[in-house]
Design a protein around this nucleic acid. Sequence first.
DNA 1: ATGTGCCAAGCCTACGCTTT
DNA 2: AAAGCGTAGGCTTGGCACAT
Length: 368
Amino acid sequence: MSNKTTEPAIVKSGIKAVAELAGVGIASVSRVLSGQPGSSPQMTQRVMDAARQLGYAPNVLAQSLRRRATHSIGFVGSDINNPLIASIVSGAESVLSVAKYSVLLTNSGGDPGVDAQRIDVLLQRQVDGLIVLPALEDDPATLAALRGAQAPVVLIDRTLPSDIGAHYVLSDHFQGLGDAGRHLLQAGHSRIGLVVGLDVRPTRERIRGVEAAFDSLGLARNLIVHRGRLSPEHGEQAIEELLSGENPPSAVILGGNQLLEGALRAVHRRNLTLGVDLSLVSCDDLPLCRLHHPPIATVMRDTALLGRRAAELLLAQLREPGATDPELMPTWFEARASCGPFVGSASTSAASPGAKKRAKQGPSISSK
DNA sequence: ATGTGCCAAGCCTACGCTTT
DNA sequence: AAAGCGTAGGCTTGGCACAT
């Protein structure tokens, strides 16, 4: 018969133990450690010494229970495998961690049903606020879940019915895609293919931006829009279908970085040289865009800034709730060799001089 | 007036007691 | 035996009361 006692591996010191060791009341320990005024220097010293001696750290769950606030923020991302989302999360976390908030990250994989489920789980966990990037803007389950939220909600790049009472950080896709469209049209392209995702705000704004490019130059809207769920497969299939048509476009804009991989597969399979046989513009800068030969022209945006602003907006709401106007963050077009030699004078003011120079030089390296 | 302690509240769960 | 119900316990903090 073994006589060994089963001691717990870790002895947790609660506020009771600190109070006992310091010879004071529990409430006094709480007052001292939370920095409230009104404790004598002797009492303060005794409590601090006892807490240090016991390695005391407040029980976060108990604090949350008492304060009715968990100091945690829920993030519902549509696809955390996407570097774009990772960058947004990273930006948000950098702000929230400074404010002593933890981020609970969930991934819906772009599935609206999962969006609603994740939102519910985060709300059950009593998060103090939500940053959401849902797959759709009109999914009934997602809207119902958000309507039930007692916590402030910040949407990134999505707009929802006004009764949700959410706050918005949006990207100005209209501007960036408009600049890209104008650049291509002034370079001599007359027919443009636009591959986009499902019917959410970025898709609508991207289409509107390219249409406005035609309008601004007094040209007929010779635009073929190819819709689908943003994925490499959609990118590949869209390029195949656009280029197999009777009157294929000479330039294609990809309205989503998830499309690029598949689009390039189709381009390579067809032995096309980007910037010569086909001009290609992508959205959101991936390392692949710069490493590819020739480099791929891109509509850029500061995704980390998007996350930071969303977090700042949420923190402001936690301090002082109230209505806010949507915040519009800039996008800009960076011309690179994949969209061929630059011959016109399109408004590409945001493009770097280096990018313009490279574009002017034309495609120097084959994509084959 | 200042410093300190007591108590209730916050939410959930395990446990024990009572009733069916 | 199963079901239903009440209570205690976990930890912290704000409000109030009391002692000095």
